[in-house]
Design a protein around this nucleic acid. Structure first.
Lengths: 229, 229
DNA sequence: TCTGTTTTGATAGTGATACTATACTTTATC
DNA sequence: GATAAAGTATAGTATCACTATCAAAACAGA
């Protein structure tokens, strides 16, 4: 069975909802492909327009600018990630299993239950790894944050934090540990592929050692009593 | 006593060494101030030229483009950070104290021993937190990496890794833990100020809880035996 | 002090980027 | 079949990211 998934996005993210038209879906689809291909810096609406046979002006009817498009697709990713987390942990009672699921999701080892023809999720994941930070590393974070653009990221973080608390009630840093886990998973994957000396994963193509590392970090942090100091 | 510090930078980072002239030093000095003030995205060589009373063309004589300037200053920061680490841990025998020093340095709680009139290190630190990732999150990482542009970052990471190994010989992930520590320190500081829901530091202005958190992460990871799995 | 070299400044120009505006055509909807 | 909405075509502006040229100033060596 494949579930048809419709993610409702915050209207502040777009000018016109791209999910409501073919052109909109094409912008998302080829936007993702193109950002992955040439990188966010070199990506322009003009190039995208050429690729999908439309005009710059038409794309501007959907997104204020390319940064908003980036925020849209990364935010979509985090929303989808939370869906996945809910779906996969739904039937689990053991919080240890839930934590394993989180790590597997973050390292993309969990099979996707949802289907969407215009979004390639593997490529999207690569974009979030390589460009995702740029959506909040700006001078207008605070403003964007007030418009709730980062809510899905924070929701996911909070959900993970709750699972940590379920595993270890009273743990002092559940949210920080959650955001650290998310960011570390992505950073270490990026480093593994691009700056491997910053890791201890050697030339391994797979994600086995990374998974082991993430498990170690999380469980050691949760299982060790936080010092009074 | 104040030590006069001259950091020798990789020549691939610049066209003409900015340390060799007044104009060069001004580019660095006001470049740092301006990137901090308006953010890297809005920063241009034209604006910088206006500010320091020179021309765009003159700045291009020193740096190929603004991205190179960013890489220059972040790389300078990591080199300086390694100097600081060496300086502060020089006389320490206890690896536990060394680790405390690392965390204090990363959270900017250690007093600076070096003096430089044209570089404001507190502001530089803020830039590295908010913009530093952008120096390696590009489509040309691999190329830049081959030109050794990120060597200082990797050197610092390696030095921290060695201290971890000194504390816990045989630890499987010293480099990953080192890069995680560096990145987490910066991310959590950024989150604390801009997206506080991703942390557990509340509205605290200081860095006490963050320090406690980083200590917890590092020591729990090092003190816990890595599972065979 | 003359002379050659390097550094900086002034000016101009090019092509791309990041938009905005307007008017016209096609498509959906009632 | 009328009306609105969506999309296309075209054009235009300000800024950006450079490159080129030439002249002036500074400076270094003989």
């Amino acid at each position: 069975m494949e579930l048809q998934l419709q993610i409702k996005m915050n209207p502040n993210l777009f000018v016109r909802d791209p999910e409501t038209s073919e052109l909109g879906k094409n912008i998302i689809k080829h936007g993702i492909l193109m950002i992955h291909e040439i990188g966010f810096e070199d990506f322009t609406f003009k190039k995208l327009a050429q690729k999908i046979g439309t005009t710059e002006a038409s794309i501007y009817r959907y997104f204020e600018n390319k940064h908003r498009l980036l925020t849209y697709i990364t935010t979509w990713f985090w929303t989808w990630m939370e869906y996945q987390l809910i779906f996969h942990t739904n039937n689990l009672r053991d919080s240890k299993q839930k934590i394993s699921t989180i790590i597997n999701l973050l390292t993309f080892q969990e099979k996707d239950q949802f289907f969407l023809e215009h979004i390639n999720k593997d490529i999207l994941h690569h974009i979030v790894i390589a460009e995702g930070n740029k959506s909040y590393l700006t001078k207008h974070v605070t403003e964007d944050n007030k418009s709730m653009l980062f809510k899905p990221y924070k929701d996911l973080c909070h959900r993970i934090a709750e699972i940590f608390l379920e595993y270890k009630p009273g743990f002092q840093f559940p949210h920080s540990l959650a955001s650290t886990l998310i960011e570390t998973a992505h950073h270490q994957m990026y480093f593994k592929d691009n700056l491997p000396r910053l890791t201890d994963f050697g030339l391994a193509k797979d994600v086995v050692l990374l998974t082991k590392y993430l498990n170690h970090i999380v469980y050691s942090a949760l299982d060790t009593v936080v010092k009074k100091k």
